[in-house]
Nucleic acid binder design. Sequence first.
RNA 1: GGGUGUGUAGCUCAGUUGGUUAGAGUGUUCGGUUCACAUCCGAAAGGUCAUAGGUUCGAGUCCUAUCAUACCCACCA
Length: 915
Amino acid sequence: MTDIQDKPTENEAMAKAYSPQDVEARWYDWWEAQGYFTPERDPNKEPYTIIMPPPNVTGDLHMGHALTNAVEDILIRWKRMDGYSALYLPGEDHAGIAGQNVVEKELAKDEISRHDLGREKFLERTWDWMNRYRPRMRYQLRRLGASCDWSRERFTMEPGPARAVRTVFKHLYDKGLIYKGERIINWCPRCATTLSDLEVEMETEPGFLWTIRYPLIDSEGKVDLTHPGIVVATTRPETMLGDTGVAVHPDDPRWKDMIGKTVMLPIMNRPIPVVADSAVELDFGTGAVKLTPGHDPLDFEIGKRHNLPIINLLNLDGTLNENAGPYAGQTVNKARKGVVDELEGEGYLIKVEPHTHNVPHCERCGTVVEPMVSDQWFVSMQPLAAPAIEAVRRGDVRIVPDRFTKVYFHWMENIRDWPISRQLWWGHRIPVWYCDNGHRFASDESPDAVTVCAECGSPNIHQDPDVLDTWFSSGLWPFSTLGWPDKTPDYEYFYPTSVMETGYDILFFWVARMIFQGIENTGQVPFHTVYLHGLVRDEQGRKMSKSVGNVVDPLIMADKYGSDALRMALITNSSPGNDQKFSDGRIEQTAHFANKLWNATRFVLSSTGAPEGGAAPSQAHALPDRWILSRYSRIVEQTTRMLEDYQLGEAGKMLQEFVWSEFCDWYIEAAKGSLKSDSAEQRAETSKVARYVLDGILRLLHPYMPFLTEELWQNLHGWPSKDGELAASAKSIMMAAWPTPLATDDEAERDFNLIMEIIREIRNARADAVRDAPENIKKEMTGRRIEAHIAGGARTAMLQQEADTLARLARLDPTKLTIAERLSEDERPDKATTLVVDEVEVVLPLAGLVDLGAEKKRLQTEAEQTEAEIERTNALLSNEGFVGRAPAQVVDRERAKLASAQERLAKLHERLGSL
RNA sequence: GGGUGUGUAGCUCAGUUGGUUAGAGUGUUCGGUUCACAUCCGAAAGGUCAUAGGUUCGAGUCCUAUCAUACCCACCA
């Protein structure tokens, strides 16, 4: 532990305006050096764990990361203050295809391909890249204030997580849940690898539907040109080169006679059978489907059912192979044109019509993906999905917002086997070895340690060349990061984790896979809550992307406005699961808030003394003090409740609102009276309350704005830390306790509400009077303190006590202010404006400015409105349904409203009568 | 084809067991050099809560349908 002396040193005086650049630069290293980010495995504390979704080490952090880390850091900082042993574990992902692609792109600048380098050299280059970029990500996360435990940082390709990958693979392999087989997979010719369905993006594109005739072959094996044959429709005519059959629906009267017949495949001159299969749609195209089992998933299924041969037409680079006969070596597009021309020339092409259809593209590089049959590794999903569905159904894992639960179920219930092998070099190599004697085995040992065949002991073995889908290792992240498969102390203490926070766009890719991997391998759900945030879009609502050039760099925003402002803006402008549009304007507003808080603290510090002895804040007796303490207590309670319910944005907005309008605009203004009071006791008491509430505000805001609140908190408690009573056990706000509410004070709230309402009404009346005043006296009018007479009725004593506050905030002339139960006639000149607030009457003799007729009209309008209100409320209260069924609280509120309106009306009539 | 959001002030958005007069920021207009803050303070205007039905004493909130819009899933070749 570093000594307290290492704490950043105090500025001479707080600057007039808040400058985030200086303040944000000075805290992070100190926090980290103090060990605040590294939780102890304290048996007396509850663990609270968030494993950071590992950003891809392929570029800089974007706004999505900034949002992710803001949410996570808020939760972590809150729980840490709330007494939990809070672990926020950071890490980075090797990013599979994306990772390999960035390095290949870099090589391409020198016109080198990975094959020129060879596997080993290429992997060295890739590691170089990773080692160069990982520190960058660390720096960026630090800059954003993420209070993560760097001593526990992980990388998916490290030995630990790599062993977890092999252990899981071997387990699933031995259990028969990982298998190798020939299936239709998605092939990206550019990346030269298999892709899972999730890595393929469908795009609707205009194309054509070609109708082609395949002539009948008669019983003697000759083409029967007098017979119409069978007519098929296709969007990809070139695939006909690999056709091995035609299918029609068994109930289709159009083709009934053709079932079982043989037709001739043009160009290839190959006889192929016509089969009946109910998977064929009756109302699409001609009702007859050409079957290319090698390159279409549906055809593959149908072909399997009818034992049709599979012909692979493609090379791995996407060109046609020798099976394509005359078209071998051509690209798909070129072959398509050639095939169409040839069919047309020979009279087999019947028609061409425009047709839009979905074309699969590689998620990473945009290349058109080719479905093809290939021998790949798969995970059997159904046995794994079932318990993962059950866990969410039972509530062992809760998804926030709730609506994604349905999406999750739908996907999991219709899940298909997961192709996990990738024909890449960068990634976890498949831990399977083959030996010369035809044996195959999986091993969880380090590849270097596998030297002989596990079955026959032969030393002539070689490892599978492929690597695993990057999401395979990501799926193990919640436990591989904690040392699993070893039962490490961290694993025992921090697992299962608390919250998994990520974007809804990777619910299937990642979250779902973590859930079933966690259950299968650790016997527990990996986390209890999934919090899904929305996408951060640009000002126009477009997705931020490098190609559009609308990416906003969070670090630039942080430099400009401060990380605190950025965090606050991202959080308060969003709600769980919903996208948000980001703009400079948003963050400017939260930067203003930071300045406001800075200045509020500056004021409190300059106008209050350090607290010394005296009564506790809860004993305060001045109304503004009692009021702010009560309001503060409610805010503490509500903030905590909202955080518990993951309403981070709402809680942040509420705090902002409370600080700005209640604490600054009302409380501080009202408290200025006490702070300048002649009574030292009164000054001390209000000082104490102001500091107490400010201290609480800083703590409540700390999770949102960590840098600023630390700076202000240190200022509040005296830098070298004499540790005043509020700081008691903590040297940093990070480690200070989460606030707890005091008792609320309903009377104080009611009384101060009345004061506020009266002040507002007077301000309005004055603004109205000035507006209506003749030009020549407007100026005189605005600067003047005005006379006022208040008939307080039952609230007189309280109002008299607050006379100073009323006078100051409503800009009344204290020497011409009277407050009495009733007002004398002198105090009700004809030329006066009368305001009725609750049962209190305020008379403002805005001398010379009040037009009697206008005043009468104004009072009449107000009386009419009040009458209408009374009528409405009466109707409601005479409604048996309402009185009988509405909660007592609501009914009482209506009754009070009625009484107050009646009282107000009486006063209005009284005043009207006197005019 | 199936599913899920969104539609609230000029703009961007909150509004979580249905319950005071539907809120905020920003913009607009008017007024302010009160010794924390002009990155500020005080006020004003601005809403048939997409539309139409329904449930209820009471609906922005619940139900049904429609329209607009965004996204996700899916093997109509």
